[in-house]
C-alpha cells in the first residue's frame, strides 16, 4: 500500500510538471493584464522544438531551453498582435493555438519526411527527474519575485491599474511585453517536459488539452503562485489516478469510465467559476490593452 502511494505521489509530481510550468507562464502573463488562452499552443511548439533539438544536440538541457525559446517565438507573434496591434486577446490566442497545431507537422515533414511526430529520443538523452524539481521551485521563485521585487510590483500594477503604473513613469507596454515573452518561455518549457521528460518523442496531440488544464489551474488557484501550484498538483493527481484506473474492473460498477476522470478538472473549474465553491477574482485590467 505504502509503495502504491509513493508510486502515485511520484506519478502525480511527474504529471504535474508540464502543468506547473505552463500555469506559471499563464500567471505571469495574466497578472500583467494579458489574457493567455494560447498556453496550449505554446506547449505544442515547445514539446516539438525540444524533441527536435534534443535529437540533434543530444542534450536535454539544450532541448529544454530550445523548447522555451520556441514558446517565446510564438509568444512574440501573439505579443505583436495584441500589444501594438491591439487584436482581441481571445481571438488572437485562438489563432495562435491553431497555428501551433499546424507547425509541428509542417516542420516534421521537412525535417524527417514524416507528419506529426519525431523519431524517438534515447533514454540517456532524456530527463529523469530534473524538471520535476524545477517545477516545484518555480512557484516559490515567482511568488518572491511578485511580492518582493520592483519588477514584481510593476507587473501587478500593469494588471490591476495600468494607468497608475504609467503615471508613476513606468512603461506598461514594456512590462507586458516582458511578461508575455516570459509566459511563452515557461509554457514552451512546460511543453518540452512532455516530449523529453514524460515521454521520449514528440507525437501528435501529445499536449491533449494540458494548456487548458493549466489555465483551469490558474483560475482555481486565483492567480496566486502557491495555490496555483496546488491546483496543478491536484490535476496531476487526477491524471495519475486516471491512468491507474484505465481498464480496471471495480466490483459492482463494472469498468470505471476513464472519461469521467478526464473531465474532472474541467468540471471542478466550472463549479469554482460558478461561485459554488469560493470565487476567483481576475486582475482588474485583464484583457484591456
Amino acid at each position: 500500500m505504502l509503495e502504491y502511494l509513493l508510486d502515485l505521489a511520484a506519478a502525480t509530481l511527474r504529471l504535474s510538471t508540464p502543468l506547473i510550468f505552463a500555469a506559471m507562464g499563464g500567471l505571469i502573463s495574466e497578472r500583467s493584464g494579458v489574457i493567455n488562452i494560447a498556453l496550449e499552443g505554446k506547449m505544442v511548439v515547445g514539446a516539438f522544438a525540444a524533441a527536435v533539438i534534443t535529437l540533434s544536440t543530444g542534450s536535454p538541457w539544450v532541448g529544454l531551453i530550445g523548447g522555451g525559446l520556441a514558446g517565446v517565438l510564438l509568444a512574440a507573434l501573439y505579443g505583436v498582435a495584441v500589444l501594438p496591434l491591439k487584436a482581441n486577446q481571445i481571438v488572437a490566442g485562438t489563432g495562435i493555438n491553431m497555428l501551433a497545431f499546424g507547425i509541428p507537422p509542417f516542420v516534421a515533414k521537412i525535417l524527417y519526411d514524416v507528419t506529426g511526430s519525431t523519431p524517438a529520443i534515447s533514454l540517456a538523452e532524456r530527463f529523469s527527474v530534473a524538471p520535476m524539481f524545477l517545477a516545484v521551485l518555480l512557484p516559490l521563485v515567482i511568488w518572491s519575485f511578485l511580492s518582493h521585487t520592483r519588477g514584481g510590483l510593476w507587473l501587478q500594477f500593469a494588471g490591476e491599474h495600468p494607468a497608475a503604473l504609467a503615471a508613476a513613469g513606468v512603461t506598461v507596454r514594456r512590462i507586458r511585453w516582458a511578461s508575455v515573452l516570459t509566459a511563452g518561455f515557461l509554457a514552451g518549457v512546460g511543453g518540452a517536459t512532455l516530449s523529453i521528460f514524460l515521454s521520449s518523442a514528440y507525437s501528435r496531440n501529445m499536449t491533449s488539452g494540458r494548456g487548458f488544464i493549466a489555465l483551469a489551474a490558474l483560475i482555481l488557484g486565483k492567480w496566486r503562485p502557491v495555490p496555483v501550484l496546488f491546483a496543478c498538483l491536484f490535476f496531476g493527481l487526477a491524471d495519475a489516478v486516471q491512468m491507474r484506473l484505465q481498464g480496471i474492473q471495480m466490483d459492482g460498477f463494472g469498468k470505471v469510465p476513464v472519461q469521467f476522470i478526464q473531465i474532472l478538472p474541467y468540471m471542478i473549474t466550472i463549479v469554482v467559476l460558478a461561485g459554488f465553491v469560493g470565487r476567483s477574482r481576475a486582475p482588474r485590467a485583464l484583457g484591456n490593452s
Binding site: 489563432g95 491553431m98 499546424g102 515533414k109 521537412i110 507528419t115
Partner: peptide
C-alpha cells in the same frame, strides 16, 4: 513537403490578420 496541416497554419494566419 507540404501537407494538409498547412490548412491550420493558413487559417491561423487569417485569424491573426483579421483580429489585428
Amino acid at each position: 513537403y507540404v501537407t494538409r496541416d498547412l490548412a491550420a497554419i493558413i487559417q491561423a494566419m487569417v485569424v491573426l490578420a483579421v483580429a489585428a
